[in-house]
């Protein structure tokens, strides 16, 4: 199974993730797309480690998953705080950063 397949699969996933981040209005979807992107990265790590026959890739996946978990936890905490504050989590409403 040539490695390009795995990488292209990861690319597709990553692409979906990016599009999700860019075009979804709802913050929750953005977070989910980010998870998707992280998984694409994981896939690359694992297939890389299998191909190079060294296990560092897999260990990196652990760390990536941990980081993803922490990120999701804090992200969703913020979503809740935002929701409580604004009553909605549609991104149009967060205009504070206006230039």
């Amino acid at each position: 199974m040539p490695i390009e397949y795995y990488f292209s699969l990861a690319l597709v996933m990553f692409l979906c993730g990016v599009c999700g981040v860019l075009f979804r209005r709802n913050i929750l979807f953005v977070l989910m797309s980010i998870e998707l992107m992280l998984n694409a990265v994981n896939l690359v790590f694992v297939s890389g480690s299998t191909f190079l026959k060294n296990l560092d890739g897999q260990i990196m996946v652990f760390f990536v998953i941990t980081v993803a978990a922490c990120e999701a936890a804090v992200g969703l905490a913020m979503v809740i705080a935002l929701f409580r504050r604004y009553g909605t989590i549609k991104s149009e409403f967060f205009r504070i950063l206006r230039g």
């Binding site: 896939l43 694992v46 998953i65």
Partner: peptide, 19 residues
């Protein structure tokens, strides 16, 4: 499944459990 398919069993398990 893909990870398990590639032989990274532990990672697959972690993926399911944690993720």
């Amino acid at each position: 499944g893909v990870y398990a398919f590639q032989g990274a069993d532990f990672v697959a398990a972690i993926q399911i459990i944690v993720y």
